[in-house]
């Protein structure tokens, strides 16, 4: 796909997110919208995967550590062909394979692991990357985390281990939108200096504008070239990106739009 096509896809995914949340009446728009370009780049350009054979052994692995942002993941999976787009509208409903936070027990194609309890995904990704290396295979492992999630101590246990084992097949992406549930990160629990933290933990670190498709793609390419270290991509993003009244507003972390708000959002997202 060309950059233009990927950008168009991101727009479509944002519309999906709005419509899914309108239907479900609850969910997390803010972090889904801030990570849309990253997710689109992964599912429509970077990942070696096969939606028709989700368990393909040679597939790259994607671990969504910030499980609450599953609307963007579900939308990407559906648009990539893992399951029907109609199923997106079962989000959070009784009996659905699209749980409020991803549940592997539901066997939704493309979901590698349950998530929702923050701070755990990077450890799982480290285990994936170690297992792949043990089998002398070349798949890559990607893990998307929130910036508020970096408050969790386990993230840094995993960061230490990834560098220790020289997991150059591992790439962590931090959706650095600067907001957590109770407010700005700098007020609730400051995580800066972020780049220096990852560097000092022994990671190769890249900083990008997480909404610039070219920068996102370049970052993933740089990560692939790294021979000795895992790569952390710090993606500077805007929470609620693309919908004016949601952008940088803490209140839109975990709230669904009503009909009027959704109409306004879709109008803004018309391509």
């Amino acid at each position: 796909m060309t950059n233009k096509e990927l950008e168009k896809k991101a727009n479509q995914i944002r519309r999906d997110i709005v419509l899914m949340l309108l239907e479900s009446g609850s969910g997390h728009p803010g972090g889904s919208l801030s990570s849309t370009e990253i997710m689109v780049a992964l599912y429509f350009s970077v990942l070696k995967h096969n939606p028709e054979n989700p368990d393909w052994v040679m597939r790259d692995r994607f671990i969504l550590s910030k499980g609450h942002s599953c609307p963007v993941h579900y939308a990407c999976l559906a648009r990539a062909g893992y399951f029907s787009e109609e199923e997106l509208f079962t989000l959070r409903k009784l009996g659905s394979r699209l749980q409020g936070h991803p549940g592997k027990d539901r066997k939704l194609p493309g979901i590698e692991v349950s998530s929702g309890s923050l701070g755990q995904g990077l450890s799982i990704a480290v285990g994936n990357a170690l297992g792949i290396k043990l089998d002398n295979q070349g798949q890559r492992v990607y893990c998307l985390m929130g910036d508020g999630e970096l408050n969790e101590g386990q993230v840094w246990e995993a960061a230490m281990a990834a560098a220790h084992y020289r997991l150059n097949n591992l790439c962590a992406i931090v959706d650095n939108n600067g907001l957590q549930i109770d407010g700005c990160l700098k007020d609730v629990m400051n995580i800066e200096p972020l780049r220096e933290k990852w560097n000092s933990f022994g990671w190769h670190t890249v900083e990008i504008d997480g909404h610039n498709m070219q920068e996102v793609l370049n970052a993933f390419k740089t990560a692939e070239k790294e021979k000795n270290k895992p790569t952390a991509i710090i993606a500077h993003t805007i929470k609620g990106k693309g919908i004016s009244f949601m952008e940088n507003v803490v209140g839109w972390h975990g709230k669904a739009p009503n009909k009027e708000q959704a109409d306004q959002a879709l109008k803004e997202l018309s391509f």
């Binding site: 692991v113 990077l122 450890s123 480290v126 285990g127 170690l130 297992g131 386990q154 246990e157 230490m160």
Partner: peptide, 22 residues
Amino acid sequence: FNVGVAEQNLMGIAAGLSLTDK
């Protein structure tokens, strides 16, 4: 794999390894 004094990470890494058919 000795993951150091980090039981939470121990369980996460074990989970990840099991997901690569170990």
